[in-house]
Write a protein that binds this DNA or RNA. Structure first.
Lengths: 138, 138
DNA sequence: ATATATGCAAATAGTTTGCAAGGAG
DNA sequence: CTCCTTGCAAACTATTTGCATATAT
């Protein structure tokens, strides 16, 4: 049977912090945010609760190079990461859930899910990197 | 101008090890393989060369949760990871490079690339996890 | 010659875990 | 009263880096 979960103050704080953020925060950003409400909460507790909430499906865990990020939006969608500053945004492109079945057909494995990550530059980093005096800025 | 690269014995060993593997090895697996040829090569050198070869586009770096993996096949294609044992295989599904342009249109960012990772169970782990005595095995 | 690359070891980043004490149900 | 959860600190995994030395070109 399912493990019985308790409604702890800490768990609620973590969930609220994820729900109040629209910037796909890292575990450490959640930790900082929650610390402002409860200066005693520990990193371990934040990590444990983030993982627990993600396992439950209450929040979404996004596996990005350089650390997981969390998303209050749980319906599957792609993400775009700035390779310069690490910022992450949602990509409003149609998500094709049927690809899982295709992948299973092709490979013989059981396929549960898939995720797509785009890599690029956010406007701020793109503009900053556009070195003045060099013409080839496209 | 481009940095000038030297053809070191170590770099060749690392590249050969990636090219000889068909199992999407981790950096540590490459390190072990190369160590058999040259017991003196250091982990740092292996990591440096793997990153360098991936930056050049000579090999492919696959960002998976739990560590990067490397692929001798550089043309873009999706990967399937076993969430139980970490094994990785290629997924022979069509890769749509034009999605990058669509994502750029939708977001206003510069989009360089994207990758898709499927998660599931390899046949071995699926069979092992199929607990005998429980009927609902589908 | 000279700058790139190596080996080593220490440092870093992100995350997990063991354990005793705390608290939800 | 039970056992899930927390706080703390230490452990862990994957990877990067500073520096003196070695080596490719």
């Amino acid at each position: 049977m399912a493990v019985q979960r308790r409604n702890t103050r800490q768990r609620k704080l973590v969930l609220d912090a994820v729900r109040q953020s629209c910037s796909h925060p890292t575990a450490d950003e959640i930790y900082s945010a929650v610390r402002e409400q409860d200066p005693k909460i520990s990193r371990g507790t934040v990590y444990r609760n983030l993982n627990l909430l993600a396992d439950e499906g209450t929040i979404l865990s996004i596996k990005t190079p350089g650390g997981n990020r969390f998303d209050r939006t749980v319906d599957p969608h792609a993400h775009l990461i700035c390779t310069a500053c690490g910022r992450v945004i949602d990509v409003p492109l149609p998500f094709d859930g049927s690809l899982d079945a295709s992948a299973a057909d092709e490979t013989g494995w059981s396929v549960m899910s898939h995720y797509t990550i785009f890599e690029g530059l956010c406007p701020a980093c793109r503009d900053r990197d556009a070195v003045p005096g060099i013409e080839a800025n496209l």
